[in-house]
Simulated assay, not measured.
Amino acid sequence: MPRRRQNLVSFGTALDQDETPKKTVWSLAEAKTLFLEDIRNLAMHTQRWHRENLNALEKVLEKQGIVVQDMRELTMPLLKNNFVFYMRDTMHLKTNTINGRVRTVRAVLHFAYEQGYVARDFGADVPLLRPERVIIQTFSEGQITNLLRQPDRHTFTGLRDYTMMLLLLETGIRLSECEGITLSDVHLQEGTILVHGKGSKDRTVPFQSKMKKVLQTYIEARGAAQTDRLFVTLERKTMSRRYIQELISQYGEAAQIRGVRVSPHTFRHTMAKFYVLAGGDIFSLQRILGHSSLETVRIYVEMFSHEVQHQHQKFSFVEHRFR
Score class of each variant (00 low, 15 high):
R120K: 15
I144G: 06
A43Q: 15
T95N: 13
V68L: 05
G142Y: 01
K94Y: 08
I144C: 13
V84S: 07
E58P: 02
F83L: 10
N53A: 14
D125M: 11
V60C: 06
V134Y: 00
V60W: 09
G100H: 04
H45Y: 01
L93E: 11
V60H: 09
R106W: 00
T33C: 07
Q47T: 04
V84I: 10
N53G: 07
R48P: 01
T97F: 00
D125Y: 13
F139R: 07
K94M: 02
F83Q: 09
M44H: 10
V84F: 00
Y113V: 04
L34Q: 15
E58D: 11
A31L: 09
V84Y: 03
E30K: 09
A112V: 00
G123V: 06
L128H: 06
F111N: 06
A112L: 10
D89H: 08
I136P: 01
R48N: 12
R133M: 05
N81C: 03
V68Y: 05
D125W: 08
F111L: 02
K63S: 05
L54C: 03
A124V: 13
L128E: 09
D125E: 13
A56T: 14
Q115H: 11
E62H: 15
V108Q: 03
T46M: 04
E73D: 14
K32R: 14
K59N: 15
Q69F: 01
V102F: 00
K59R: 15
Q64C: 04
Q137Y: 02
A56S: 13
R133C: 03
K59G: 08
V67W: 08
R101K: 12
V118D: 04
L128Q: 12
P131N: 14
A43D: 15
D70P: 07
S27T: 15
T90F: 09
T97D: 03
W49E: 15
R120V: 04
I135R: 11
E132Q: 14
Q69R: 04
L78P: 06
K94L: 06
K32S: 13
R130W: 00
E114F: 01
